[in-house]
Nucleic acid binder design. Sequence first.
RNA 1: GGGUGAUUAGCUCAGUGGUAGAGCGCUUCGUUCACAUCGAAGAUGUCGGGAGUUCGAAUCUCUCAUCACCCACCA
Length: 1001
Amino acid sequence: MAMDKTFNAAEAEPRLYAGWTKAGAFRAGANASREETFSIMIPPPNVTGALHMGHAFNNTLQDILTRWHRMRGFDTLWQPGTDHAGIATQMVVERELAKTNRRRTDFSREEFLDLVWQQKQKSRGNIRAQLERLGASCDWDREAFTMAGAPGDPEGTPGGQNFHDAVIRVFVDMYEKGLIYRGKRLVNWDPHFETAISDLEVENTEVDGHMWHFKYPLAGGETYEYVEKDEDGAVTLRETRDYISIATTRPETMLGDGAVAVHPSDERYAPIVGKLCEIPVGPKEHRRLIPIITDEYPDPDFGSGAVKITGAHDFNDYEVAKRGGIPMYRLMDTKGAMRDDGAPYAEAADIALAVARGDQTLSEVETDALNLVPDDLRGLDRFEARKRVVDQITAEGLAVMVADADSDAPAMIPFVESKKIMQPFGDRSKVVIEPMLTDQWFVDAEKIVGPAIDAVKDGTVAILPEQDKKVYFNWLDNIEPWCISRQLWWGHQIPVWYGPYEAKISGSTDLAWKSDGSGWQICRSTEADAVRAAEEAYGSEIVVVDDWMASLALKGSGKVGIWRDPDVLDTWFSSGLWPIGTLGWPEDTEALKKYFPTSVLVTGFDIIFFWVARMMMMQYAVVGQKPFDTVYVHALVRDEKGKKMSKSLGNVLDPLDLVDEFGADAVRFTLTSMAAMGRDLKLSTSRIQGYRNFGTKLWNAFRFAEMNGVFEGRAEAAAPPAAQHTVNRWIIGETARVREEVDTALAAFRFNDAANALYAFVWGRVCDWYLEFSKPLFASDNKEVTEETRATMAWVLDQCLILLHPIMPFITEELWGLSAKRAKMLVHADWPAYTPADLVDEAAEAEMRWVIAIIDSVRSVRGEMNVPAALQIDLLQLELDEAGQAAWEKNAGLIQRLARINSITPSAEAPKGAATITVPGGTYCLPLADIIDVGAEQARLAKSLEKLEKDLRGLRGRLGNPKFIESAPEDVVEETRELAAEKEAEETRLKTALARLAEVA
RNA sequence: GGGUGAUUAGCUCAGUGGUAGAGCGCUUCGUUCACAUCGAAGAUGUCGGGAGUUCGAAUCUCUCAUCACCCACCA
C-alpha cells in the first residue's frame, strides 16, 4: 500500500464519521469496561439556524473529554439535543415571513406554530450535520429537544424523552409548593415582540440622551419662598416660586405621573409638601393635579431634588408609588404606542383628579383601565409622543429656561441637558425596553436559591476557573423574582386555566383567587384535570373556551367556561431542566440512575446566570440533587482583533468554512491549543493552517514508517517492546512522559497544555529526532536492531494516535486503520496507563541529550559560518570526558549523519582557522581554514561568552549569598551549583578557543 | 457606582517563587533518500510604571496608568 502524500480530510472525514456511527461507537456505554460513568449534557444550541465558532469550541472541548473517558473505559454518555429558544426562534420565523410581507398575526396560533416546527426541524438537521462535521461523538440515538412531545410536535420523542411533560410537571409541582406565583408587577416589556422578558434579557447600553427640565405649577397659583443654601448654610438663592422644577429623560411618561416626590430632609420644598401641583401637559381645562410627597428615594443633590413619580413606567418610581399608595397609570399599549383605548381623556382625567384629591379610590383593574393619554397623543409612538409633549410644554412657557451659552446676544433657551444615559434594550429585538405593569408569572427564586449557593460554597459542585464562582455568587446572593411568562406563541404553554368570578365556587377548594381579583385560577398538568377541578369547585358543567370574553357568553346557560392562560414559559425554565429532562425524568429511567448527576458541564461564561445558575436551582428544587459535579466555564471566541463575532460586524468565521478549508482536526486542534482558562480567544486562520500542517507532519511520519517496513506483518501491541538500543529506550521513555502530561492536563481541564505537549512531542521529538535517528538504524545490517526499531516505532506511532485521538479524531482514526489490522477502531482503543517510572531510562535520556547537543552545536556552527549544507566536513576532537566518550562511541554514526560529518580525528590542538564546538564534557573543532572568517568566528564566540558570563554572574551571585544557601531548598541549591559548574567549564572552553584564535589572527 | 480580568518577542498568547517560552511572522541557507502543508540556522523581551515582602519576583502585596468585560434604578 502506498499512502497518499497528504491526508484528504474532505474525503476521509465523512467516511470515518459514518464508520463510527455505523459501529454504534458513540452510544451510551459503548466501550465501557468499568463501572464508573462519565456524562456530559450538551448545552443545547438554539434551533434558530446554524452553529458558530463558539459552538465549535464548546463542542470540541466536550468531545475531547468524552472521547478520552470512552477510551479509558468509562461508561460514557454525551447527550445531544437542541433548545426551542422561544423568542429567538419565533423571531427567525417572523423574519422569514417578513420577506414575503406576511406577519405572525396573519396566521392562527396553530398555523404559525406549524411554521415554527418546520423551522425547528430544518435547523435541528443543520446543527446535527455541523456537529458531525466537527467530529462530535454524541449519542444521537438519544437526541433531545426542549419541547419534544409538546402539542403539534411532528417528530414526537424519538430520543425517548418527553420534555414537554416534564416541564409541565415541574411547573405544577412548583406551583403547588408555592414557588411559582402570578402577580401584577412592573416588568421589562419588549414592544417589538410584545412580551415580558426577564432582567437578564435586557441589555443596558449607554446612549446619547437628553434631560429636560420642566416647571410643575402649584395648584391654584400658590407661591412659596424657594431658598438655596451652600454647604455652610449661607443663602445663595432666594426667590418666590409658583412651581416646582422637575427633570426627566422621558417627558412622555409625565402623562402618567401620580405624584412629585422630594426627600423628607429637603428644606427647599418643605413648605409645599402635601400640596398639589399641576402636570404641565394635556388640555389646559383638564390639567391633572398630583400631590407633592416625601420619600427617601430622591437625592436632594441631584437635579432639582424633586422627582416625578410614574409608577407604571419606571422601576424606581414603582417602588416609591407602592410605598406611598400612589396610583400607577399605564400609558402605553403592548407595542409601546400611547394608549388609544378607554374613555376620552377629559373623563379619565376627572377621575384621576378625584383620586388625587382623595375623593375616590380605584381598584387595580379600574386603575389599569384608566387611559390618561390626551386625545391628541393617543395612538402615537412613544418617541413621537415625547417630541409633542416637549413642544407643548415649551410652547406654553413651562420649560425651565437658561441663558444661551452659544449666543452672543443675551437670550434664554429651554434647559435641555445633553447627556449619556443608560437605556435598556431587548437583547433580541434591540428595541428600547419599556417597564410595563402587567400580570405575569414568577418563580420565587429566593426560596430555591439556597442549595445552589451552598453546593458551590462547600465544594459539592466545582466551578472552574475559580474566579467565575464570584460571578455566580454575586448574582445568586442578590437574586430577584424570575419572570417566567412570555406573551409568545412558541413555547410551553402555561398549564393554568382561569374561571370567571361571576360564577360562585362552592365548598373547599385549592383554586386560587387571581391576583387582580377578576377570577379563579386552576393549575393542573392536563386540561382534563383542570376541568375536573373546576367542576368540583363551581359545581357546574365546565366548558373550555378561548378566553374571558367567550366565557361571558355562557352566562346564564348553567355552564361555566374556563380558559387557558395563553402565555408560554421562558425558554430558560425548560432548559433549566435539561440534565434530568434529557435522561427521561420524571420516569425513573435506567439512564437517569446511571448518568445523573452528570459529570461535567462545559459552557461559556455568558450563560452562567441564564443557565448554570437556573439549572442548579431547579435541579435542587425538583429532584433535590446537584445537576453536575463540575462546571467548566470557557472563554468566548473572538475574531483576530478581539471583537466579538457578530453578523452585523461581518467578522463571523463559520466553523464549516474552516473545516472545509483545513479539515476538522486542524480546527479542533487550534481551538484546543488556545483553550487556556479564563481568557478570550482570538482566532486567526494562520494558526489553523499551522495545525493543519501538524496533521500533515504526523501523516508523513506514518508514510516514512510505512516505507521502512514498520507496519509489515506487525503484531499490535499495547506494551512497548523490550528495547535494548538507546535510541529506542529513549523514545519509549519520552512517550511515557507525554502520556502522563496529557492525562494530567486533561484531568485539570487544561486542554491547551495537553495539545501543546502533544505537539511538542510528535513534532519536536518523534519527527525531528527519533525518525532521523532511526534512519541509520534501519540501514543497519544488524537485523536485531532494525527489528527492534521497527517494533518501537510502530508502538510509538500507535501511542501518538491514541493520545492525539481525542483532539484530532479523524486523521488518527484513518492512520490507525492504514497502519495495521486492528482489533478495535481507534475510537475504542484502550487508553494507556504506563508511567515514566515504568519506562524512562535515565541513562538513555542523558546519552540522547548529549547526542542532540553535539548535533545542535555542529549545525549551529555550520549555519552561522555559512558552511554549505551539502558539504561533509571533518571534525577534530580536542578533549572529551569519559561519559562523553561513551556516548560518542555508541552514537558516532547518528551524529555523523545528522551533523553531516565526514570523519572524526582526535587531535591535540586546533589547527589555524578552526571553529570551536563545546559540548558537555568536551571540545571539538571544525577545521575550516578555507571557509572560515576568523573575525566572524571571534565575534560568534565572544557573543556566546558574553551571554554565558551574564548567566554566571547571576549564578555566582546567588551561590555567594550565604542566605541563599541557608534558605533555599537543598535541591535548588544543588541544581544551581551543578549549573554553575557546567557553565564554568564551558566558559573555560570558550576562553581557550578565543585565545587560540587570538594567536592565529 | 460596584465587581472581575488583562498588560510578557513584530502579532496572538502560555507561563502562580528558583537559568524568560510557544505558534505565527521575519532574516539567511537548503528540492537525492517521510514531509516545501518541509528542513537547518538566526534575530527580537529593563515580563505596563513605581514601591514593598523574600536569599531570590513575570509570578506574592500595595499603588499608579491604560485597556477589556460583567453587574447596577440616579430622575
